[in-house]
Design a protein around this nucleic acid. Structure first.
Length: 293
DNA sequence: AAATGTTTACGGGACC
DNA sequence: GGTCCCGTAAACATTT
């Protein structure tokens, strides 16, 4: 059953409260992919290691949600025309981001220092950046898990016995770099399929991975050095090939492109000062999943 | 028990 | 209209 027909309280909040308060748009004119009124909070320098956002506090989110242990500073938007109004609207912060779950997961992984994250780290990254996803966690987290399992563009990196912990790491398939043409994360231009096994074992062998019978499962050597080649591969393949603004295939700078997001992340001046709530500042672990700066 | 991972099913929207 | 992508729900298995 689709959410449009569900009449639970959350859905009412999502569809009416959010969009009604946004300017010049409505649920009827905005698809979930193109919510032009969404105020993108990207600007987090290190979502996994810092405290709560003053923006969230100002918006009353802190009182609506249980304290997150690893919430990050969600800065105010830097989306130019999107949020060029007098002040960002509070409701817009809660609007559904215009990214698919695949996009969100991809962004999270790509922005991590080691290009691989655990499921929980992916959850945290999404919630840190997008307050919308602090609601109905059971719903969207199920979708995230489904996306990870269902889509060939994500590969599971199993832990070694030397590196115990819960859950595997998730990484982007080395050949999934062109999923989002122009670096636009709104909607994939084409679905990545590994049916042809474009990523051969030979390719993986140089990537710190060892192949396994499972098509989308690789094994992680706990020695960090063996993970590095994969990072390089991703950086060159994904970041440069598709996310680089000057790339021939990226002839325009879409405001939802990852390059735009990253640029704003590096250069934006926050509207609101970043403050921390509580004692939730955690030390960064030197593990896969630690976010790069 | 809870979190994590897999699979199936269905319907909506975008695109051709 | 057909196809593809996506979101959501749900059931079930596996792992910690």
């Amino acid at each position: 059953m689709r959410s449009a027909v569900r009449m639970d309280g959350h859905e009412l909040l999502d569809r009416s409260s959010f969009y009604r308060e946004t300017e010049g748009s409505s649920a009827a004119t905005n698809s979930s992919y193109m919510n032009a009124d969404y105020v993108n909070p990207v600007g987090v320098t290190n979502p996994s290691v810092s405290g709560h956002s003053s923006l969230l506090v100002a918006a009353g989110v802190a009182s609506m949600n249980p304290p997150l242990q690893r919430a990050g500073p969600v800065l105010s938007p830097g989306f130019g025309p999107i949020c060029s109004g007098p002040t960002p609207r509070r409701a817009s912060t809660y609007a559904k981001p215009p990214y698919s779950y695949i996009s969100l997961i991809s962004m999270a992984i790509q922005q991590s220092g080691t290009k691989m994250l655990t499921l929980n780290q992916i959850y945290q990254w999404i919630m840190d950046l997008f307050p919308f996803y602090r609601q109905n966690q059971q719903r969207w987290q199920n979708s995230v898990r489904h996306s990870l399992s269902f889509n060939d563009c994500f590969i599971k990196v199993t832990r070694s016995k030397d590196w115990p912990g819960k859950g595997s790491f998730w990484a982007l398939h080395p050949d999934s770099g062109d999923m989002f043409q122009n670096g636009c994360f709104l909607r994939r231009q084409k679905r990545f399929r590994s049916g042809t096994k474009a990523c051969t074992d030979a390719q993986r062998s140089g990537s710190g991975f060892s192949s396994s019978p499972q098509s989308k499962q690789v094994h992680l050597n706990p020695r960090r050095a063996e993970v590095v080649p994969l990072q390089h591969y991703h950086y060159q393949q994904a970041a440069h090939q598709n996310l680089e603004p000057n790339h021939p295939h990226c002839s325009f700078s879409h405001r939802f492109s990852i390059s735009s997001l990253m640029f704003e992340q590096q250069n934006q001046t926050p509207y609101l000062p970043v403050t921390y709530v509580g004692d939730s500042v955690l030390s960064e672990q030197n593990h896969p999943g630690s976010f790069s700066h």
